[in-house]
Write a protein that binds this DNA or RNA. Structure first.
Lengths: 118, 118
DNA sequence: TATATATGTGAATACGTATTCATATATAGG
DNA sequence: CCTATATATGAATACGTATTCACATATATA
């Protein structure tokens, strides 16, 4: 980039500085991006969708999403790391369930957006 | 996958079928995933954030996000295709603005989620 | 028409990531 | 202890994608 502070073609430099200062810090932005990335995959969306209705073990989940158990395990790990799901062990099987109250609202917003397009 | 309809380790086969039927169609799921993918990138998040506050031309946007104009143009195209931003041409310069009422709510939900983690 | 400026775009590149395979780990039962 | 079952995980692979570079396009102005 140039070594000027601001190119300011069309808005007031002072206002631009204020706008820039109001931007969330880079790590916040990155966390947000990571959060949305989790929702940016069909398999994970399906998993989350099913977990909105049931607590489910890995085997049943992999049947429902029609993917290999290994794939589902990998994705569940990602969902766990992002604290969207939690699990409970019962003997040999592991039951997963939602661990975030916002998942449903987020789904609904996305569907709203899609509906408003032709 | 196996040629059985359902492995049904732990939930009732009938209920599983119902759950499976209630899942949005694959193309809806894919559209949702694509929608979230758009938010899954820091540069685009910043662009959207700035457009929440101002209508802005490409040059000013690229200054604000501190990225090359070419990069910003590419990302704006993606945002346009997903109908998240609209533009207005004035002579030689192009002004972008938000084209979706849900962007703000979506940002807020993400921030809520992040706040609730340690 | 020639030039300058703002934006858009195709190709190349480097990096991320979803899936699969093979295998490891953990646990229950004999 | 041995076996079967459920889940987790590392390596490999194939594919997607964010960015940059170089250049094209469009528009205003001299």
């Amino acid at each position: 980039m140039e070594d000027r502070v601001c190119l300011c073609k069309n808005i007031d430099p002072a206002e631009m500085l204020n706008t820039q200062k109001a931007l969330p810090a880079d790590d916040v932005i990155n966390h947000m991006a990571d959060f949305f990335k989790v929702f940016g995959d069909g398999t994970r969306l399906k998993i989350l969708y099913f977990l909105m209705h049931h607590e489910l073990c890995v085997a049943d989940l992999s049947t429902l999403v029609n993917m290999q158990q290994s794939t589902v395990s990998h994705q569940l790990k990602l969902l766990r790391l992002n604290r969207l799901v939690k699990y409970r062990k019962e003997g040999i099987t592991v039951y997963y369930s939602l661990d975030d109250s916002h998942v449903k609202s987020i789904f609904e917003l996305a569907l709203l957006h899609l509906k408003e397009q032709r």
